[in-house]
Design a binder for these strands. Sequence first.
DNA 1: ATCCACTCTGTACTATGTACAGAGTACAAC
DNA 2: GTTGTACTCTGTACATAGTACAGAGTGGAT
Lengths: 266, 266
Amino acid sequence: MLSSRTGAGDPARTLRLLWRDPAAVPRRGPRQGLTIDGVVAAATALADAEGLDAVTMRRVAAQLAVVPMTLYTYVPGKAELLDLMVDAAYQAMPRASTAGLPWRQRVTGVAGENRALFESHPWAAAVTTSRPPLGPGLIAKYEHELHAFEGLGLDDIQMDAALTHLLGFVRAWAGTAADARATRRDTALDEEQWWEISGPVLRVVLDPDTYPLATRVGTAAGTAQRGAYDPEHAYRFGLQMILDGLAALIGTAGGGAPAGGAPAGG
Amino acid sequence: MLSSRTGAGDPARTLRLLWRDPAAVPRRGPRQGLTIDGVVAAATALADAEGLDAVTMRRVAAQLAVVPMTLYTYVPGKAELLDLMVDAAYQAMPRASTAGLPWRQRVTGVAGENRALFESHPWAAAVTTSRPPLGPGLIAKYEHELHAFEGLGLDDIQMDAALTHLLGFVRAWAGTAADARATRRDTALDEEQWWEISGPVLRVVLDPDTYPLATRVGTAAGTAQRGAYDPEHAYRFGLQMILDGLAALIGTAGGGAPAGGAPAGG
DNA sequence: ATCCACTCTGTACTATGTACAGAGTACAAC
DNA sequence: GTTGTACTCTGTACATAGTACAGAGTGGAT
């Protein structure tokens, strides 16, 4: 039962894998023909190009010119491979220092870095990372991002919660945006065509007198934006709300709020 | 190609299904032995009890004592079944009027209703609803929830964006919380046990000098809460930030802000 | 020189969504 | 009534997924 091969679900093993623990490298037997990084890179390339669904053990193996089961020498299972992909993506993120900048700019920067992550790796928002992969990438990212919230008079728990809230927003936004893109591709219907088809049906079935607010606001939102959902607007709006919420928290937290950016940025 | 049976991916067909369009009910042939509502209810019961993965066409069919393919008489495919499940869950949500209450209470109420939804139907946060299922449930929910944002001096687009932001938060929160629960169940490790195993490994591999902020804040957050993640705290914190962000928006929006609740509620 | 831990491989099992074809049923048209 | 046919329900079958398992080969530790 406790075979060394079947280590799927073992947190310690996954952690050692994430950190590339040298003690976990086998000393006997033939040299490995691939590397963990190579496997992760192949899987990531596949996910970037064709989405998370394209990441199957068979296809990753094919990329690397090995048979599917060979991957299980490197990775306990698919779930762990996904964890490794996420951590590697985190590790590759740029981490420019924003020391000295006003906090609104720092926080906006963190949001932007995460947005960029999800734009180059849309699948990352869809990975169900049951527990966060506590690898070097995530830790380095966490360390970097916490700096944006330091010196604002928040205690440690507030810093963590504020960062979590911000990251949750960007992730949720990225998920919605990616879903919209994916549907557009799969259905071969863009937002406009979809409304062209759905509009008439809805008009028959949906009674404006029963749902006055919904029709008014929904129409306004749908008309202002090209379709039903404008990712750019949602992002700017959400970020602004978070910045303002944070400002309120800072005002509450220490008593004396340090200087920040302008109250409202465009 | 345009068979009436294979209508998966057809938005118009899905819409008619969502609204239970009587015109879509067949007039010829034997009477159906099941109902759409019955199918949706069976699938929902399965999802509630065992999670989204348990919802397979075979198992839903088994619940209803029919053969899997029979379901395809009622539903074009699994994706549409999930859409129907979500819309039905929306429809079943309580919609108590909060007219007259201060806006912070109204918005808190909307958040709470959604939180309750995800607590009784955790799978709902995980359904990838590429495009929102524009059924009667969603529309009624939208109508109801918009009322919380009316009279605050926001224009229609701001109302929509604010609601979207709030819902995104609750959904993201629910997803994280559900993931944590699911992992606990699948791994048979609770948060504490997991840390017991991971702690030693992390201590070896993670250098506090390289990641000072991360270790300090991470430890503080992990100690204060029982494990690494405290859903209750995250929810309260996030909601507070949204309320404060909304307050700032309202202050900006019209010039004269209507009366609201206390600046900070518990 | 020997051993066996380890790598890589092929085969095989279970599970999924759903296409397809056939058998039976009951309303619409005559 | 009788007939036609649109519709329901069923069984079989296929492609694709993750991965368990067993065997053949390899090379560092002894």
